[in-house]
Amino acid sequence: MPISRRGVIAATAGGLAAAGLAAPAQAQSQAQKTKPTRRPFGKLADGTRVDLWTLENGGTKLGVLSYGGIVHRLELPDARGRYANVSLGCADVDGYVNAGTYFGALIGRYGNRIAGGRFTLDGTTYQLPQNDGENSLHGGTQGFDKRVWDVEPFSRGSDVGLILRYVSADGEMGYPGTLRTRVDYTLTAAGDFRIDYRATTSKPTIVNLTSHTYFNLAGEGTGDIYGHQMKLAAARYTPVNKTLIPTGELAPVAGTPFDFRAGKAIGKDIRVAHQQQLYGQGIDHNFVLDKGSTRAPERFVTVSEPRSGRTMTIATTEPGVQCYTGNFLDGTITGTSGSVYRQGDGFCLETQHFPDSPNQPNFPSTVLRPGDTYRTTTVHSFGVS
Rank of each mutant, 00 (worst) to 15 (best):
L52C: 12
G255V: 00
A235Q: 14
S4M: 02
G143W: 08
L349C: 04
A31H: 10
R113M: 06
H228E: 13
D78E: 08
P297H: 09
G68D: 09
T243V: 09
I163Q: 13
S29R: 15
D170R: 04
Q281Y: 10
R180S: 15
A99K: 04
A91Y: 08
Y237M: 09
R118S: 14
N57W: 01
L232M: 07
P361I: 11
R342C: 03
K61V: 07
E318S: 05
D269T: 04
T141Q: 14
F363A: 14
T378E: 03
D132G: 05
V253A: 08
R156A: 14
F119K: 09
L88Y: 06
R310I: 03
P204Y: 09
T188Q: 08
S29L: 14
Q28W: 02
T60W: 03
F154Q: 09
T243C: 01
D122M: 08
T351V: 12
T200Q: 12
M1L: 12
D94L: 06
G280W: 01
G331K: 02
G331A: 01
L217A: 02
T101Y: 13
P239A: 06
Y110L: 06
A218H: 04
D372A: 15
R5V: 05
N57D: 12
L187T: 02
G282P: 10
R109Q: 10
F354C: 07
G263C: 09
S339D: 10
S155A: 15
